[in-house]
Design a protein around this nucleic acid. Structure first.
Lengths: 158, 158
DNA sequence: GTAAGATAGTCAACATGGTTGACGAAATAG
DNA sequence: CTATTTCGTCAACCATGTTGACTATCTTAC
């Protein structure tokens, strides 16, 4: 087992990763607010992405996000209230209520993707393309495969 | 302005950063639980670190963490309840209640630092030392300077 | 020396996000 | 037809954050 680099304490790495994530997400939402989506919260973008173009149900959404169906339902309620999602009855199954992205939600998703592309371009300008791809490759190597879980508030806070 | 690399969509970068952070923190707390600290939550380690060896007050802790003094006080309450922090009266100012790390809290902090060092060593074994230092340097370049804010639950969820 | 202002901590009410348990309605299996 | 499963919701609760109001205490100004 290799010994730790004495010059580089291990605790800095998670802080830097969190700082990088937070910087990107803050920049995204600052730009989203300028482009007409000030209500979108960091969590909401992930939820919209998980709903997807085809729509889904609250139960399935909970499974995708790694949270309970009840929590998924409550989050959908709030996104419905601000106009990013809508609920429609499923004609083929009266138990199900399909959750769909509204046009406003689709606009937010499209802009988010464009803004993320621009932000990544800024990173490649500053760091060089090969450094950014190296970071992505290395994080893909080290990070757990099941990272698409959106229970971040409960996970972090307990 | 550079155009985005079409092969590398921008949205992957924040997800990879979050996944890397989460992987490290999850590994840390799995090992902490094995070493006798199963109650520690991700948030708690940051709070213990912010209290520091000299102790502090709830109001100052809130300022350090970027949260209100009330929120800091409530978090201190919970860490007192599980034995990681203690409150003592300040003999020089009857308004203040000093928050101090208990021996158990200090043990958790010490073990956290050691575990983070071991986790970083694992990363350098897999990726090579120069790739890890490059990642740290690049993140330090791109991330905002004021990253030590622990309002993550409220920030993320809204 | 006292009055006024600033500061520390707490209490209360509320929002957001999470959980588990219970339950009715509807689909499915036998 | 009946039994079981599935979907959605309701209710209660916990953890974290917020703002506003309040008391107690220290500090400052006169």
């Amino acid at each position: 087992m290799a010994t730790a680099d004495p010059v580089r304490p291990g605790f800095a790495l998670p802080l830097l990763l969190l700082a990088g994530f937070r910087t990107l997400i803050d920049d995204l939402h600052a730009e989203l607010a300028r482009e007409g989506h000030p209500e979108l919260r960091p969590l909401h973008g992930f939820v919209l992405q998980a709903v997807g173009a085809d729509g889904t149900t609250a139960t399935e959404l909970g499974q995708r996000l790694g949270i309970s169906k009840q929590a998924a339902g409550k989050t959908v309620d709030r996104l419905v209230a601000v106009g990013y999602l809508e609920r429609v009855d499923d004609p083929s199954d009266a138990r199900r209520r399909l959750v769909r992205v509204t046009p406003r939600g689709a606009d937010g998703l499209r802009r988010s993707a464009e803004i993320f592309d621009r932000l990544r371009a800024q990173w490649t300008e500053t760091l060089g393309p090969e450094r950014v791809t190296a970071m992505e490759d290395d994080l893909g190597t080290m990070a757990s495969a099941n990272w698409f879980r959106l229970d971040v508030p409960g996970w972090f806070g307990g």
